[in-house]
Nucleic acid binder design. Structure first.
Lengths: 201, 201
DNA sequence: ACCTGAACACCGTTCAAGT
DNA sequence: ACCTGAACACCGTTCAAGT
C-alpha cells in the first residue's frame, strides 16, 4: 500500500522497517511462514539482502514482530467494541469478547493460521504477554468483583476461556468444508459454555 | 533401546523404519523439530543419507509420523484408564478424560511441545483425525444420550472441551515457573468448567 | 550512519552407481 | 530389492567495501 518511487539512498529507519514488515506480511499470507524467504522479502521491499539484517536479527524475529503487530491490532479493535457496552454488564462484555474474537480471527483466518500455527514460542494464553488474553482476564476479574460471575480464580478462568476461543477459531479455520452453519453452531456453543461456566451452580 | 550390532547389509524394512523413527524421536526431544537435521537422524540410525528417503518422503512426513505415534500411544493408555470407571458414570469418565489428558501431556511436555507447536497441519480438535479428541466425543455423546449431560450438540462440545484441555496443557508447559500449585489450580479449574458446562442450568 | 551484494555455511533432496 | 554417499539446490546469515 505504501508505494515508494525513486527511492532515496537512505530512508527513515522506521519507514524502512515498516516496508520490510509489509512485504513479509504479503508473502506470509500467500505462502506461509515456512516458504517465506528473506530473498523474497528484500526483493519486494526493494532493498539489498544485508539491509534486512540491520532491522531484524533473524527471520524468526521478523515473524515474532508480525505476530505482535497482528495481536495488537486485533486487541485495539476489540477494546473499541467493548467500550460500546453498558458499564456494569459484565456477562455482556464476556460474550462480546468471545464472539468478536471468534469472528475476528475467522476474518483474518489465513494470516492468523499462517502466523501462529508453527512458531516456537507462542504467547498463546500467557496473560503477561498476550494483550488479547489480558483483556479477557480484565473482564472476568471485574465481573467477579461485581458479583456477576462465580469464579474462584478469574485469571485461571481466563486461560481456559481463551483456549476455548483460540482453539475453536483454529478448528473452524482448519475445517475444509466450513459452512456458515458450522461457524454459527460453534459460536453459539462457545457462548453457552461461557454462560454456564461463569454462572456457578 | 533397540541396539543393533554388526548390521547386515539389508534389514527388514519395518525395523529400519522404526530405527529411523526412534533416532528422530531422541533428537526432537532435545533439540526440537526445527533443529533436527536429516544428517543427524541417519547418523544416529547408522544408515546412509539416501536411505532416509526410501522410508520417508520428506523431513515433514517424518514429523507427521512421529506425531501420529505419539497421539496413538497416549490414546491407548487413556482408553485403559477409562475402562476402569463404572459403566454409566459419564461425568466420571469426562472428568477422568480431562484430568488424565492434562497430566499425560504434562508428563511428556517436552516431546508434545516439540512435536506440535510449529507444524503446518495440526489435527488439533478435528474429531475425524484426532483419536484423542474422538474419545472425548464418545463420552459426551454417550453421557448426553444417557441424560446425564445437558448438551445440545455433544460433538461441538467435544471440540470446545478438547481445546480447554489442549490449551491448558500447552499453557502449563510454557509457564517458566510452573509450580505444582499452578498445575493443580489449572486442573481443578478445568474440572469445574467441565462440571458446570455439562450440567446445564 | 546506512546500505550493498557477493561469499559462506548449512541442510533437504536427488540420483547414478554399487551389492 | 535395498543401500550408498557425493553432488546439487536452496536459503539464512555475515562482512568487507561502498556512499
Amino acid at each position: 500500500m505504501a508505494g515508494s518511487r525513486a527511492r532515496q539512498r537512505t530512508e527513515a529507519p522506521e519507514r524502512r522497517r515498516g516496508d520490510l514488515l509489509d512485504a513479509a506480511l504479503a508473502i506470509v499470507v500467500d505462502k506461509g511462514v515456512t516458504r517465506l524467504t528473506v530473498d523474497e522479502v528484500v526483493a519486494r521491499a526493494e532493498v539489498a539482502k544485508g539491509t534486512f539484517y540491520l532491522y531484524f536479527r533473524s527471520k524468526e524475529q521478523l515473524i515474532t514482530a508480525l505476530q505482535d503487530r497482528f495481536v495488537d491490532d486485533l486487541t485495539a479493535l476489540q477494546r473499541a467494541e467493548l467500550d460500546q457496552i453498558d458499564a456494569g454488564d459484565w456477562l455482556g462484555r464476556l460474550l462480546c469478547w468471545m464472539e468478536s474474537s471468534l469472528r475476528g480471527y475467522l476474518a483474518h483466518a489465513r494470516l492468523h493460521d499462517a502466523l501462529f500455527h508453527h512458531s516456537q514460542h507462542g504467547h498463546e494464553a500467557d496473560l503477561a504477554t498476550n494483550s488479547h488474553a489480558a483483556l479477557l482476564a480484565e473482564i472476568l476479574e471485574a465481573g467477579t468483583a461485581a458479583g456477576d460471575f462465580a469464579l474462584s480464580t478469574p485469571r485461571t478462568a481466563a486461560v481456559l476461556l481463551y483456549n476455548v476461543m483460540h482453539g475453536s477459531a483454529h478448528y473452524l479455520v482448519e475445517q475444509a468444508e466450513r459452512s456458515p452453519d458450522l461457524v454459527e453452531a460453534v459460536i453459539a456453543e462457545s457462548l453457552t459454555l461461557c454462560r454456564r461456566y461463569v454462572d456457578g451452580t
